[in-house]
Design a protein around this nucleic acid. Structure first.
Lengths: 217, 217
DNA sequence: GTATAATGTTAGACTAAACTAACAAATTTT
DNA sequence: AAAATTTGTTAGTTTAGTCTAACATTATAC
């Protein structure tokens, strides 16, 4: 049995190792807002349970079992976010907090019913992929808007590290998933972009924003 | 702040004191599946927090604050059950387990949205009243079917202590809330009843069943 | 109304998950 | 390559929620 606390460690490990490949105790503990010794002893515990491969002073790695467990929690989180937006009328900036709690509910029926009512979606409201029942996550490789060149026309496919503030900012600019963006110019000095989309002929996006917008061609 | 564990104690106290008026440590601990000393020290803790009025060797009583807290958890539980049945297509025998977990989610928005989508229902799928946002619970005083006399025609309004088995039994006999029952006879020996309803001209209900079916005239 | 049974309380121990303080190893800087 | 910094580990403490064993009080039976 995996406790709620353990589930949160696994989820953190999955998301950090997806971002940067290698995960250390320091990074993990900062991400979870706990102290290093706490994370350290939890890693030993998860290692006993064959969820994490732990060797002193070496980077942490999820075992296949651990990766699967973590992906199933992510699945529950993302299905919940989708359900809250599509079936309950919440805004995409409101759903993270609630999903953070709902993801720990033990009931396959509950999440399978959500999945069914939603028509088996492949992506959540922020464009992130929803792992399947076996914990397989299809990684569609989007580009960051920041990596695109002047003149390109691209479609907004997902947003990265979508916190409350960032999503409210996007709402205020009518930047929704699916919007087609044309890159009018790129400022060499600060890498900010001027783009056109929808009814907005020119909108300035900072480099930070461009890094967090993922697009497809 | 009230922990998940504390919430479960409060809920148990509310339901036991609604049933029988007085609640003892022994009964409370049996109901929660824990040992008496554990319940005892929790009562002291809840007393510190002004949620329970605790005096050694005297029956336990919720304070007004405690009663309100408990009723708000019951509200969340019953709204959830209603949502699962009405909006997600679960059977009334499936929803208790899930609601038992969902009731601990901290988000007013989440439950208010459910309430709104459901059209502000007054009763849950088992006929139990849903407390309002202030923790006020309207007690409609139904009778047990067992208390009715031969010849009476009554409407099934709620079911008591509705566990999985009991609800499956009711499903198998097509006994749903709102069904009109006519009491054809009462067996003096074991207090079982023969009743007519829907397309069933005569159906035998044991005394145990009759005690748990609540009806209105 | 005393003996017995049931219920309630106290004291002390355990586990999970957190912490701080001190120490050890690895990495980076100079 | 030695010093300094960052990262990781060990040891011991804390809190919430549980337990058992022993004792105390209240209720019940005879």
């Amino acid at each position: 049995m995996v406790s709620l606390t353990e589930e949160n460690y696994l989820k953190a490990l999955l998301s950090l190792s997806a971002d940067k490949g290698e995960v250390g105790i320091n990074e993990l503990s900062r991400h979870l807002g706990i102290k290093m010794p706490t994370a350290n002893s939890m890693m030993k515990k998860l290692s006993e349970k064959n969820l994490v491969h732990y060797v002193s002073y070496k980077p942490l790695r999820l075992t296949e079992k651990g990766r699967r467990e973590a992906a199933l929690i992510v699945r529950k989180h993302r299905l919940t976010e989708m359900f809250l937006v599509e079936k309950m009328g919440f805004g995409w900036e409101q759903v993270h907090e609630i999903a953070e709690q709902v993801e720990h509910i033990h009931s396959n029926d509950f999440f399978e019913k959500m999945d069914e009512l939603l028509g088996f979606p492949k992506f959540d409201p922020h464009g992130s992929p929803i792992p399947d029942k076996n914990g397989k996550m299809e990684w569609v490789s989007y580009e960051a808007l920041a990596a695109c060149e002047k003149g390109a026309t691209v479609k907004l496919a997902a947003v990265l590290n979508a916190g409350d503030d960032f999503l409210k900012y996007l709402n205020s600019r009518e930047l929704k998933l699916g919007v087609k963006l044309k890159i009018l110019s790129i400022e060499p000095f600060d890498k900010s972009m001027v783009v056109a989309y929808g009814k907005r002929p020119q909108e300035v996006l900072s480099a930070l924003v461009c890094e967090r917008l993922l697009v497809s061609r």
